[in-house]
């Protein structure tokens, strides 16, 4: 079945709302407007304002209310328009959702799902374009996932809703228009493991989310040059699937990490550090990171393009790892 990433998100939301009366969706403009990325289009009219709820414009209020509703036995799905705006609710997420189970000695759980768009590439400048999933992946108590495929866009939400802990879903905004085939009956997928999206033998390209299509495109370019690149999609950013990272490096002996976050103190840094700690003797060459330039993401297209990981940059990085 030919579909889009956006439609997969929408179908996942619709199914979740239909299946479980405890589930409701709330956020800014998610109601009649259908969401700023149109992920809930039509759901308000079909299911009513109690299940698909526009909220006042306050991230802290609707994330806090989501936490409260989860404590009160519901299974809220909170949509934050972009992860840049999630900082207005950071205290609720970090100091509350992530800590309440532990601080209460396991008496309370916060099964809230928080979805947000992430990433650049749409000429919306710094305050709409940052990739902050790596920050959230730093926080104990959260599970952080980044669907990079249609199947994951469709299947991660139901698993996240079944999880008794808070789950953050980062949807790269450039992926919403991604088209592809989704098998009939595609449903819940695991949110524990990384996944090899393209097997290879010469170099491991470790990536996730919005960088996955770029990395797969780079692997295609490399294949034409006779280089066999393995692409590992992390999928789950916390807890990281360390075994899968070590396994691919053990297989290819070379590592390139592609991450739209900033390089220093990043998710990419964590992947390289783990390989340095536990896979050092597998490596035949120093690992290389392809990340966003460490600048606020600019507005003009040529500057924005220059700031982000791109296919030619990934290809050059692989050549460097292979040939020095």
């Amino acid at each position: 079945m030919k579909t889009t990433y956006r439609e997969c998100v929408r179908q996942a939301l619709r199914e979740a709302l239909l299946r479980d009366p405890r589930v409701f969706l709330m956020g800014e403009d998610v109601g009649r407007y259908g969401g700023c990325y149109a992920c809930s289009k039509g759901l308000h009219d079909e299911l009513g304002p109690e299940r698909v709820r526009d909220t006042p414009l306050s991230e802290s209020a609707f994330v806090g209310a989501g936490i409260g509703a989860a404590l009160g036995g519901m299974r809220p799905i909170v949509e934050i328009m972009t992860c840049n705006f999630s900082l207005l609710a950071l205290d609720q997420i970090l100091n509350n959702a992530a800590t309440l189970r532990h601080m209460s000695g396991g008496q309370f759980e916060v099964p809230v799902v928080i979805r947000m768009a992430t990433g650049a590439g749409r000429q919306l400048a710094a305050q709409h374009s940052h990739s902050l999933e790596g920050w959230y992946a730093h926080i104990p108590g959260l599970r952080v996932v980044a669907p990079g495929t249609l199947a994951d866009a469709r299947g991660m939400l139901p698993t996240a809703l079944a999880d008794p802990d808070p789950v953050l879903i980062f949807e790269n905004a450039l992926l919403y228009n991604l088209e592809g085939e989704l098998p009939e009956g595609a449903g819940a997928v695991d949110i524990d493991h990384a996944c090899v999206r393209r097997p290879g033998s010469d170099v491991s390209l470790v990536t996730y989310g919005g960088s996955l299509p770029k990395t797969l495109a780079a692997a295609e370019v490399l294949a034409a040059e006779g280089i066999s690149a393995e692409v590992l999609d992390l999928r789950v950013l916390r807890p990281l699937d360390g075994a899968a990272i070590l396994a691919t490096v053990d297989k290819t002996k070379r590592l390139v990490v592609v991450d739209e976050g900033w390089r220093s103190v990043s998710l990419a840094a964590e992947v390289v550090a783990r390989v340095a700690e536990e896979g050092f003797f597998s490596l035949d060459a120093p690992p290389v990171r392809v990340c966003s330039e460490e600048v606020p993401i600019p507005y003009p297209k040529h500057l924005e393009d220059a700031a982000l990981p791109q296919v030619p940059k990934i290809v050059r990085a692989v050549r460097q790892v292979l040939h020095g």
Binding site: A61, V63, G64, A65, I67, G68, G72, N96
Partner: peptide, 10 residues
């Protein structure tokens, strides 16, 4: 405070 409101809403 927002959590209380959310629990009430639940």
């Amino acid at each position: 405070f927002p959590q209380a409101v959310g629990a009430a809403w639940a």
